[in-house]
Write a protein that binds this DNA or RNA. Structure first.
Lengths: 346, 346
DNA sequence: TTTAGCACTCGGCATGATTGAGTGCTAATA
DNA sequence: TATTAGCACTCAATCATGCCGAGTGCTAAA
């Protein structure tokens, strides 16, 4: 069902106004806008049509109209124009990412903070899913009679290490051979996809070291997974500023759901598959955020999408603006993280 | 100014009632309690006295009385009896700490969760301040031509390691000598107290390696400090359940202050000096929590107090009960962490 | 097809009366 | 002298009431 141009314009005007004011908008308000040039009565007729088509809703007779989720969806898909960030915004973001940042945690927190303070919505950042990154080398270096250092180097130039106990009697050259064998077998594999089963496929001398292998993988995997389920949150209380949450019960329900983080983790991991995602109200899987919108974007290390981040806010969100911000922040975040690991490689 | 026994009993009755109901308590309510045996009129006289002495406050004429901060202080210091946890509570705590927990982060999160879900207040846990822990050994082990592994072992049996580049031409035995020199000099020192100045005191061959030392210390310190400023938060939205925060403005102000975490970090680091601490309303340094109470306790690794944790809630908090919980949780937390690092030593 | 006009709806707000919990004071009582 | 009953008074909370204004739908005229 295609809407004619006039209905489109009226709908857009209603959405624009509602995003700004959060109060149901009436026919007079729209009529007064210079660029429409129709009387309230005409607008009323059109509005009645739009309501019938499911784009508008009336909280009660004698109130104005409110855009429905369907309207926002149409807005995001067809009406909305790409927004441009203000100079101040661009500078703010640039500034925050040009600072010295040398801990992943810090960058993640920073991002959450920048995002929530710029958008005034609740922001969330999924920590990098390092376990999803690809292996390049495994080195095994003896450091004492019964201990060795296992070092893995990944795709993106990141290294992780871990001290492990080695079986008595294992000599340096055996260790080196094992390292090489593992490297040829598992190079290009994702760390979380390396299983015992795959190890068992290996034969010869290497196959003897199964127990040793298990311990090593567990230890390495742990140091990669480190904080991988972590969701950094910022500005959750921002939502208390929006009149749609002036009702305590609603506010509490949403805040509680956000604070739990489980749900956010679900939403964000799913969102790691698409560069940008917009979920409006009832489009959300999760019950507790069916009256909010969630907008997310992904970030990368090198060329691998490795995590996602975004905001939660009322459905009358300024989608164009938020998307523009997510774009720039995602770019900056990816750069910083990529540099961080590249540098580690040296 | 000592209160006579009867005033004491009346005050206690008022506090008990107010903690339960959060509504100003009147003379009739107290008189009806079987164990007092006085008429409302008498109680009124006593209440007037207590008000004059600063233990009670009246929100307005014709309302009942509300205990003042001073009253709670008296209650905590002199009236309150040591509370006993219910079997269910003890079991709940025990259960949560007997699970397999092998990441510090996890234990910290767990603690915050247990605390907030049991108390129904907002809970906070300061991550272990590992930089405050004492050094035992420094080992330096060559692993490649230009790289070595620096390993430190602490007091509590914890180890941390870090790969560092070594100056060209440095041989294995020189490395070992340096390690020994550093160990004798810095054993028993806190990691965050080792400065370049102290290094400069060293003389001979070792003193040549100043740059190398700097890099190493920085790298080690970073891996110890890891997450040290972190404050884990849980159940912040619990405070929305208390009628004292049914006013949106107040609720938002408090939630925002809590969410910021800076203030909590300040409060908790300070609280790491005393085993238990109770700060009632205006006793709090920080403006934003002058109408709450903060109760904290410390936890240890081995014998070293290494962090603290606690709750934030309305001043009419059930102090005795909360303190009992903090006691048991602190004990469990200390045990788990101590085991964790002891085990690492093996 | 558009618009002016009109009757109608309904939430929000100010007003005012009522209620009830609680107080302080005074005078009687033990 | 300490306690208590009685009474006048205060004040927040609650509820009914009426009014206002923003907004609608419908009809008839342009």
């Amino acid at each position: 069902m295609q809407l004619d141009a006039r209905k489109m314009r009226i709908l857009q005007a209603i959405i624009d106004d509602y995003i700004l004011t959060a109060t149901p908008v009436g026919s007079r308000t729209i009529a007064k806008r210079s660029d429409i040039g129709l009387s309230p009565a005409t607008i009323r007729n059109e509005m009645a049509d739009l309501e019938e088509l499911g784009y508008l809703e009336q909280p009660h007779t004698s109130a104005g109209r409110v855009p429905s989720d369907k309207a926002y969806r149409l807005y995001v898909n067809s009406i909305m124009q790409r927004a441009k960030l203000s100079d101040a915004e661009v500078r703010y973001i640039r500034d925050h990412y040009s600072r010295r940042l040398d801990e992943v945690d810090e960058v993640v927190k920073q991002t959450a903070w920048v995002l929530s303070s710029l958008t005034k919505y609740a922001s969330m950042v999924l920590a990098p899913q390092l376990h999803a990154i690809k292996l390049k080398y495994i080195h095994l270096v003896p450091i004492a009679e019964d201990k060795a250092l296992a070092i893995i180097v990944t795709d993106a130039g990141m290294t992780r290490d871990s001290i492990i106990r080695i079986p008595p009697g294992m000599k340096q050259d055996a260790l080196e051979r094992l390292g090489r064998a593992l490297t040829t077998r598992f190079s290009e594999c994702r760390l979380d996809e390396i299983t015992q089963a795959q190890f068992n496929e290996l034969s010869g001398e290497v196959a003897q070291q199964r127990e040793f292998f298990d311990v090593m993988m567990q230890s390495l995997r742990r140091s990669m997974t480190q904080g991988g389920r972590n969701v950094e949150l910022s500005g959750a209380t921002n939502i208390l500023n929006y009149p749609e949450y002036s009702d305590m019960e609603r506010a509490r329900a949403l805040l509680t759901a956000i604070e739990e983080k489980d749900m956010l983790y679900r939403v964000l991991t799913e969102a790691t598959n698409v560069e940008f995602s917009v979920r409006i109200g009832s489009e959300n899987e999760d019950e507790s955020i069916r009256d909010c919108s969630v907008v997310t974007a992904t970030y990368k290390i090198g060329a691998n999408p490795i995590g996602s981040f975004g905001v939660i806010g009322p459905t009358r969100m300024d989608y164009a603006h938020v998307l523009a911000m997510l774009g720039l922040i995602g770019k900056s975040l990816s750069e910083v993280l990529t540099n961080m690991f590249e540098e580690e490689r040296k």
